[in-house]
Design a binder for these strands. Structure first.
Lengths: 268, 268
DNA sequence: GTTGGACTCTCCCACCGTGGGAGAGTCCAC
DNA sequence: GTGGACTCTCCCACGGTGGGAGAGTCCAAC
């Protein structure tokens, strides 16, 4: 008795979808009714279509875009699994982003925005031995780690004396292609292969201390840049981070990072 | 020197916002420029406005709606913290929903949709002693637990003999106000205060077995309803779940739940 | 002065998925 | 054949952002 045709309203109730949704899925070719009456335009569905409709509802529940669902429904099981895995990864990434957001929001809600004390001061000249990398804003964490694990062996092999803390240098703007540098202060090492040098000029800077996970650094930068702009100063690249207490020495919550941004009087 | 005025482009670069965004925030009154040239319409910002702009950027980064950001900026610190806490809760809830989605997607990607074997069969008549509750789809889990912890003491006190498994009954449609029932099969107990009785008629049913967390039940229902509709049958309320292995006996991954939906030949 | 290039303005349209509502037409049971 | 429930199409709304058209403005270099 499968030939029985269902009007859109009935079919919608069966599948827990709205009539609007079904019409939309028809329009976009995702789930066309088996029959559309030529004169009245009425859509008619068969009960067998409930399988696809339910699957659509299920995948929508998981927030897959309709376009992706369309692909998945049309694909062979293997490439369908491929698509679903890709969506799973997308979702997993969103969750981890949201986790970071949640922790920041937590901190904001508890401590309020004024949680950071920004100090204007002067930095001495420093000469850093660095290694460099290019990355997107999202990759910063891993790239810095990678840089550290490239840097330390080179320093060791060349028997270069250096002192903590580790430093990292960043451009002022978070672009899709940012060049970063990770290094340590040292007077030695000229000409060591794999090593480059960065002369950080001394001068006026704004700084603050961030205590907590690196994912919450944006809070500190918010305070820092606010303070700089409010004073009518201009930030100067590169932004410098000094890792006073790093992940090897303490848990996430106790990491200490000193953030330094060189500034220049804007008009003077 | 704070009186220096910035054009929208400069200001946008300062705050890592796009010109479009700034114009939008102006239109909606969230961040109006200090000065708008009457004849040219040019917007001019002061460096002090960077604080608000950066805060907006920060909160947007955490996905707060602009309307909420506007509230938060305008509010006193205490009610601001209130707002942020509310947003935090919203985000936390989204994360947990996404977690459930992720697990389902995982299962879908690995096992594929055909992971469920649906059996058509017959159920005998059953008489359940139940307690009832009203809830939204999201609350089902906790409400069922609560029902169980209401049910068992009543049964114990009234010295009613009953047998496992625990059953739950649900309406066919997941509405905002769903009435659910949780109970056990027993021939006794008439008139016990706090206890109601539900006579489940025997007859044709469709069933499947779900193994895994309750958050993944939608997958099983998808298969179950698909099978029912494909055969041209009509599901009959109430949907029955039998908790063969519950959370007290096994970890999440090993929970066993039997899903039963009574059916009726659609035309016969 | 004038010119050119970088900037800005406003206005409209697009995305995504869904819902609301208008106004007209259709189905079916009584 | 009539009423009520259903369906149709078409447009607009939400959120926040971006793209692009076409016109106007600013400022520095010549």
């Amino acid at each position: 008795m499968q030939d029985e045709l269902l009007t859109i309203g009935r079919f919608a109730r069966l599948c827990r979808l709205s009539v609007k949704q079904l019409r939309h899925y028809d329009e976009m070719g995702l789930l066309p009714p088996v029959r559309v009456d030529a004169s009245s335009g009425y859509r008619y569905y068969t009960p067998e279509q409930a399988r696809d409709a339910l699957t659509i509802a299920l995948l929508r529940e998981m927030d897959l875009p309709l376009a992706v669902i369309a692909q998945a429904l049309a694909a062979e099981p293997e490439s369908r699994a491929q698509i679903l895995r890709a969506e799973r990864d997308r979702l997993a990434e969103r969750i981890s982003r949201d986790q970071a957001r949640l922790e920041m929001l937590e901190r904001l809600a508890e401590g309020g925005l004024p949680g950071y004390e920004v100090t204007m001061g002067r930095e001495p000249e420093r000469r850093l031995a660095v290694v460099r990398a290019v990355c997107t804003p999202a990759e910063i964490g891993e790239k810095v780690e990678e840089c550290v694990s490239r840097l330390l062996p080179v320093l060791g092999k060349a028997r270069i004396a250096w002192k903590l803390p580790l430093w990292a240098l960043y451009p002022l703007d978070l672009e899709e292609r940012m060049e970063i540098a990770v290094g340590v202060q040292t007077p030695q090492g000229d000409g060591t292969p794999g090593l480059e040098f960065e002369a950080l000029p001394g001068g006026p800077i704004a700084e603050t201390m961030h205590i907590g996970p690196y994912a919450q650094l944006p809070l500190a930068y918010n305070a820092l840049f606010s303070a700089i702009h409010e004073r009518g100063l201009r930030p100067q690249a590169p932004v410098r981070e000094a890792y006073l207490v790093g992940p090897a020495e303490a848990p996430q919550e106790e990491l200490m990072t000193r953030l330094i941004i060189p500034v220049q009087e804007s008009m003077a």
